[in-house]
Design a protein around this nucleic acid. Structure first.
Lengths: 216, 216
DNA sequence: CAGTGGTCTAGACCACAGT
DNA sequence: CTGTGGTCTAGACCACTGG
């Protein structure tokens, strides 16, 4: 069915509902349901009294992506330097966030992301050992891809963004002068009701820009 | 129809489809379409083989809101001090953004937002004079409410966020020490295909946190 | 005007939950 | 097993669009 609109130019009319009824020998309600799905996906647009047409490219709001994917989208090749990768007890704060016991182990992963040869982001990520324990054995290039592969792709994230000044350590790692402005980003990422990631990131403030698309 | 689920607790079962058929004397397809709409709105959840239930509160991604609304959501009372409100020629850059002639007039509105008595944000907003020209006569408390009232509620926005250091002028207006970290936010807001707002904002970086909810 | 999508009827069979 | 939602048929009338 999807083949009927495969890569056609936006505005191209789709076959009418009654024509599809004849062509496939099904009821019109069935055709409508199939078309409804495509309309829901933004593939088609209905125009009452005129017809159904191939929709233009849809604007999609910023989704839940890791920095690696985010930068890759902009054509930046990202290299990751792992500074720390260990298993640590959750502790009070993280235990609350992950809703586990404070003694429960978490994976802690401190990374420096380098884009096009320059340090861009310093991040500290916590993951539940329950499904990320063996991550320490072979660290993935993209955390979000790896989570997805394990059936825990984050579908929801809450970010808090503020500006600050680089500490001495941050300045050294990010290779910026002390006191340079940085973006501080803390994230809580969920898959359904389970928290799959908590992270704190520090980004070069003047060079890196966070791009957001918002709908409605 | 919506009355059937009016403010019931999440998890409460809705009447079965066949029961609604009897009660309203309509076909089941009709009932399903009505229920489909409510499911689409996130009011109901279907559970095949079990029934249809009142859905829990839905997580909604960050939408297109002005700073006034944004802060109001967090209980901060915002006062706006207008520094400049004038009509100016678009100029090259803005003409491109708004897709108008460089000589076309735009409304330029420079505001200082004060939340709970402290300056929070300095913003420079450009609007098409076509539907915002008379805005200069009586400036609204909430720009987005006013745009909505004029049938130009922004449904799409693209933000770029970065960190920087306050210039002398910014520091003075925001009442922070010179060289303080600030969040710089530039926004392009659209209603459909028409650009309704371009703005540049500077926010106190250490005190103000941008909160984002991302889906999928 | 003829053709379109929007909506509706009154049935039907299926896969799946819970008992 | 019964009841649920998921899907389907083969018609029907409406409001709207374009020529």
């Amino acid at each position: 069915m999807r083949s009927l609109v495969g890569d056609r130019a936006p505005g191209t009319p789709a076959p009418s509902e009654r024509e599809l009824v004849d062509r496939f020998g099904v009821a019109r309600m069935t055709v409508r349901q199939a078309l409804d799905a495509l309309v829901g996906e933004g593939v088609l647009e209905r125009h009452p009294g005129r017809g159904t047409f191939v929709a233009g490219p849809r604007r999609t709001p910023t989704g839940v992506r890791g920095l690696t994917d985010e930068l890759a989208l902009r054509g930046v090749v990202v290299e990751t330097r792992t500074l720390v990768a260990e298993s640590v007890p959750a502790g009070e704060a993280m235990a609350g966030a992950f809703r586990v016991h404070p003694e429960e182990p978490l994976v802690r992963w401190v990374r420096l992301r380098v884009g096009d040869g320059r340090p861009v982001c310093l991040s500290e990520t916590y993951l539940p050992a329950a499904f990320a324990g063996d991550l320490l054995d072979h660290l993935p290039a993209s955390l979000y891809d790896e989570l997805a592969a394990r059936g825990h792709r984050p579908t929801w994230a809450e970010d808090a963004v503020s500006a600050g000044l680089a500490t001495d350590e941050e300045a050294t790692l990010l290779e910026v002068p002390q006191g340079s402005p940085v973006l501080r980003l803390t994230r809580r990422a969920l898959d359904g009701e389970t928290v799959v990631e908590m992270s704190r990131s520090v980004l070069r403030g003047e060079d890196y820009t966070l791009h957001l698309q918002l709908r409605d």
